[in-house]
Every structure is written in C-alpha cells, then in structure tokens.
Amino acid sequence: MIQLAIVEDEDSYANQLIEYINQYQAESGNYFKISRFSDGDEITHDYKGQFDIILMDIEMKLMDGMTAAEEIRKLDSDVVIMFITNMTNYAIRGYQVDALDYVLKPVSYFAFSQKLGRAISKMRKSSSKIISVDTPSGVRKLDIDNIFYIESEGHNLTFYTTGGDFTIRAKIGDFEEQLSPYYFFRSNKGYLVNLKFVDGVENGACIIAGKQLLVSRARKNDFMSALTDYMASLP
C-alpha cells in the first residue's frame, strides 16, 4: 500500500485530489492510504518519514509548501514530493528540494494521473535499497549504496555516509542481518562495512574512504571470501 499525503488548505481542491486518487486506484490496481493535512506546519510537526508520496500545495497560511518541503528534506531525502500550485515561478526553488513535478491548478484528471504514475515509478525504483533509521529528530531514510560503513561504540552506532555522519543509539546486530544481502560484512565486532567502498586490504585492515578499519583475525578469511564474491558479482 502506498502512503500518500495531501497538504492542501482548500477543502475543494483536497477533495478533488482524493477523488482523482480513488479513480486512479480503481484503474491502476495501486492502493493508497491517504492522509490529509491543512497546512505545511501540520505535516512537518513530528514528521517520521512515513510517506511515499506527498502532494503539497505551495500557498498556505502558516507554513508554505516550499518551506515545508525544505524541512521534510532535512529528514527524508527519498519521499516523492509533487507541488500543487497555480503559479509556475517556483521551478528553481523546486529543484532545490528535489521536487519531482508540478501539478497546475485547475487540476485535470488526465494530467494528474500521468504525473501520479511517474511518482509511483520513481518511488518503486528508489525504495528497493532504502532503509529507515530512527534518530532523535525522527526517522531518516538512507540509500544503502550511500553508506560507507557503520561503527559500533558502546550503545551507539555511527553511520558514515556520502552525505555525512550521524550517531544513533542502537546495536550493530540490528543492521547486520538487514544489510548482509547488499554486500555488507562485519569485519570485526565494531565495524559493519560496505564492500562496495573497500579500496584495498593491507596490514590487517580494509581501507574505506581513506580510513583503515581493522579486520579481525578470526574473520579475515571470511572477509576476503565475501570481498571476492562481491567483485565477482560486478558486471
């Protein structure tokens, strides 16, 4: 089921979008759970990355849609955002928040259905390698291919990613099983590494992003075997 949010302060437009979504659902076989918000501040409050697609009005009273999208992007880089507007001069700012598209008011069903189909395609393409991580500020969605490695220290895990580092309270075992199908390997009790980013192995350590991460003696043979399997899987 696709989790879809409508952020629209005018009931007439919100009801029209719900009607169009129900029609699209009947025609396409895609099923939606629809949540309605009347302003940008409503959806950003306690946002937990729970939506796949957000249809966002731009002009709203308390928090406009562009500001709301900027706040959402701080926590969720993968949700598909489409703006609903009667103004076309927001295109440049839309690129800054990685908006997929614009639906211009008045909304026609044909145009809306085409854009919704595109949004679903993008969502499904990106969701296959996405994990959700609970952080103190909310749920953060991560593309697995952007994780260099995860370091465990005490009760904390630090994720080292292409987009920066962040720390959460969790156990490394919580992610080891989840990530193992994607060529992640536990090089020792403190590191879960993405074999995609291993640049070399020397002096009992693997090199990732310029850092040497210890490979324990007990895991060395299994690590080299896993690395060989990964290399063999490359096209």
Rank of each mutant, 00 (worst) to 15 (best):
R186H: 11
A232H: 12
N188T: 15
D101A: 09
D64Q: 09
N86G: 12
D174T: 12
D222W: 07
F83I: 08
Y95S: 05
K115F: 08
D39W: 09
K196Y: 09
M87C: 06
Y24M: 09
I34M: 00
Q23W: 06
S12T: 15
Y182R: 06
N188A: 09
I43K: 02
F148V: 14
S137P: 00
I92D: 02
S35L: 00
F159E: 04
R124S: 06
D143W: 04
G40Y: 10
H45W: 08
E10Y: 07
F223N: 02
Y182A: 02
I147C: 02
N22D: 14
Y20A: 01
D78I: 11
K125R: 12
S233F: 05
D101Q: 14
E151T: 13
C206A: 11
Q25F: 05
M60A: 06
S137A: 14
K196A: 03
L116Q: 11
S77N: 10
L4G: 11
G163Y: 15
I144Y: 01
I92V: 14
S216V: 13
L227F: 15
G49C: 07
D76S: 07
F112L: 10
L195P: 01
L55D: 01
D11H: 10
D64A: 04
I81D: 01
N22A: 11
N89A: 11
L62V: 15
R73F: 05
E59R: 15
R140W: 01
R140C: 03
Y31H: 14
P136V: 15
K74D: 07
D46V: 14
M66R: 05
K125P: 00
S152W: 05
V198C: 04
D39Q: 08
V133Q: 09
L192Q: 04
I130F: 01
I150L: 04
G138V: 12
L142K: 04
D229P: 01
L116S: 09
I84F: 02
F184D: 00
C206R: 02
F110W: 08
Q16Y: 08
D145Y: 05
Q96N: 10
E19N: 13
Y90I: 13
S38R: 15
F223K: 03
M60N: 05
F185R: 03
K171W: 05
G154T: 11
Y109L: 04
I34Q: 03
G200R: 08
G173M: 13
N194S: 12
V201F: 10
D174H: 07
S152F: 03
S77E: 14
V103D: 01
D98A: 14
D165H: 03
R219F: 05
Q25L: 02
G40E: 07
R169D: 06
Y47N: 06
Y102W: 07
K196I: 01
Q25I: 11
P181G: 13
F223L: 05
M63T: 15
K74W: 04
Y95R: 08
K105D: 09
K125W: 03
K61I: 13
N156T: 14
I92E: 03
D101R: 14
I72L: 04
S108T: 15
S113P: 04
V201K: 04
